[in-house]
Nucleic acid binder design. Sequence first.
RNA 1: GCGCGGUUAGCUCAGUUGGUAGAGCAACCCGUUUACACCGGGUAGGUCACAGGUUCGAGUCCUGUAUCGCGCACCA
Length: 768
Amino acid sequence: MLKNMIILELDYKGQIFVLYKIIHKRHAVLLFFSYSCYDTEMKEIFLSPYDPKSTESRIYELWEQSGFFNPDVCIEKGVTNADAEAFSIVLPPPNVTGTLHMGSALMLAIEDTLVRHARMQGKKTLWIPGTDSAAIATQARVEKDIQKAEKKSRHDLGREELQKRIDIFIEQNKSTMINQMRAMGSSLDWSRYAYTMDEKRYTAVMEAFVKMYEAGLIYRGNRIVNWDPKGQTTISDDEIVHEERKSFLYTFKYSKDFPISISTTRPETKVGDTAVAVHPDDTRYQAFVGKEYSINFCDSEIKIKIIADESVEKEFGTGALGVTPAHSQIDWEIADRHNLERPQVINEYAKMMAPGRLSGLKTTEARDEVVKWLRENDLLEKEEEVTQNIATAERTGGIVEPLPKLQWWIDVEKEFTIPHSNIPNIKSGDRTSLKKIMENSVGENGVSFVTERFEKQYMHWAKNLRPWCISRQIWFGHRIPVWYKEEEIYCGVNPPTETGWTQDSDVLDTWFSSGLWTFTTLGWPEKTKDLETYHPTTIIESGYDILPFWIARMILMSGFFLGEVPFKTVYLHGLVRDGQGRKISKSLGNNIDPVDMAEKYGMDAVRVSLIVGMSPGTDSKISEEKIRGYKNFANKLWNIARYVLTSTENLTDDTVELSPKDMEIKNELDAVITDVNRHFETYRIDMAFDTVYQYIWHRFADEIIEESKVILIGTDEALKVSRQKVLIHILETSLKLLHPFMPFVTEEIWLNLNKKNDRMLMVTKWPQ
RNA sequence: GCGCGGUUAGCUCAGUUGGUAGAGCAACCCGUUUACACCGGGUAGGUCACAGGUUCGAGUCCUGUAUCGCGCACCA
């Protein structure tokens, strides 16, 4: 009778009225009669299709109230042994400026799966939640909002007022973000929540800076930096995106008397030239090496020395390089080797500082002006169109202008004595450097990568490590704990007590504090129990796009401050793309919002859709159809539970031995468990899920249950009871195996299996 | 330029130490008889990018080519 009916329940005067809509081909007939559920054994909840909406928040509340997200509570309540193996993950803190997107949803789904699995295995399991202040992005966002609403710049507001506005903005966004993480079902230990700018973390960052400064690894120096004129700040090499553009390569001479022609794509910088470099072996120019020329170039008096340097390629252009030390990274290094002057000719607003006709022009205008001048003076020899990679700032899109600036740097090559070390090949008390720490931390007994190719990428990056510029000219962030008074410098966690000191106005690169994240979240610089128990963390899980930014910096920082690696394993996931494999972008309008999708299909379906077909390090696809498919799976499971429940109600004697056939079925399930465990060990959770999914749907439901229908109407009592026992066993095991992936629906079924005295599914023992 | 990946069914992807090619979605056909139509049963669909090599045997290992993508560096 119940088949082919859509059941609508109406609660009326304490009775439940049920509307059955009987489907008969295309005709629908409505019947109306009352049906009392209260007296029956069967849980009325199973009469309707699974409804994630009414379930999920209720279940999450139950979990949270139980306290089991906190490993200390698990030990206290006897769920975990006090001496169990530790398993810890720090959540890569999502940016407070945004809402949860599919990328963070994937991250949460993967990590929660790993964490729930570990917890059920009886490990002391800690997953630390956090949010990130994302200094530059946040400040830019708030400034933009203020500019739009009030037509004011940050300078109109002042540092303190801007800070206040940012704080308000962040408070609002933080709760949205945290609620969305909860909606995902994330079993994060909220009692250990950390925010990158909270008091504890702030102090820790200050402490870290001071320690590195005292070790001589942080220094202030005038070097060439990547300056973003649009964002008015320095940026690191990693924040640069190269864009291909068409431009012209000009070949010319500085003056009629100058013996060598040079080529450039940026003629406007040539007023800052102090040398022409040629290769030492280049016979064409050897006679001129060492000569100096004074020239009036486009209204600027310049002095050009001809030098020989190995870095010049004979074959490129004319084989001679005009050296502009102040506005080119390579030229700056050449100037180092040859002790050249470094006049700055472009300022922070990308405008010319040169005298005469170029004075005050934008660089692009100056370029035209210089070319015009060259033509007028008959100095331009060649003009060819070339495609060039131009450096732009990732955040603002501004064209990066290399400039010399006084900034704070971390010296990655400088040697220091490491007091304590667990890093492979580095012993306590050894002389070492940050670069050596980075190179040695990865490999046997150190950090291992789930996807091998990222290890190669990492090593490549570590080998080419350069001085790291850590100061940023913005207002929101961890302020550099350095004070100046005339010629004196003071560096300390607390400001100097006497008057007359002014603090450095810059803040730290956001990756400086992020690098400390695995241990500042565990209480460092204090020697806490958490730090001892959970560090190094078991695994770091994040998108592969931040490998150099974050993973590498954490290894560097943890190595320096703790003498150990920050994590044992690196699991990097790919980008989430749309159903056709395109990048998700605003212009394509192909964004799929995880929270919207969860409203429609349930969070379990969203989580699983993200995990299926995702192998570590490879981009994955998400589409609404896929999510719908897994909603159906949740419902399938729901109905399996309903069937097992109704057909085992009268199970009386559970001492009966299993029939040979049922024994076989049980062994088969054990093989599935082994497979799933093997996949978990290699972090192939996509395959682990697929194994469970295939088993439940196509073996358990399609075959075993179908078979059972015959057995259960039969007359052989022993066979019947045996089968009932096996059905219950398979259902319970399935729920356990599935729980890390689909925590809500499995917990809900578990709670309705009349197992009131048992633990919640999230802390039952994982099948072995 | 240097380094690293991918190329397997119409689409998206698995394929763990070499041993008869797999899944999901889509397509097509059939199914109103009690867990589920948010379902079931079935059908069709592949020179595993190409060329060569190792091997009794290659999607899997080696060499080369094509092509798409990623990372790093940048040529002034």
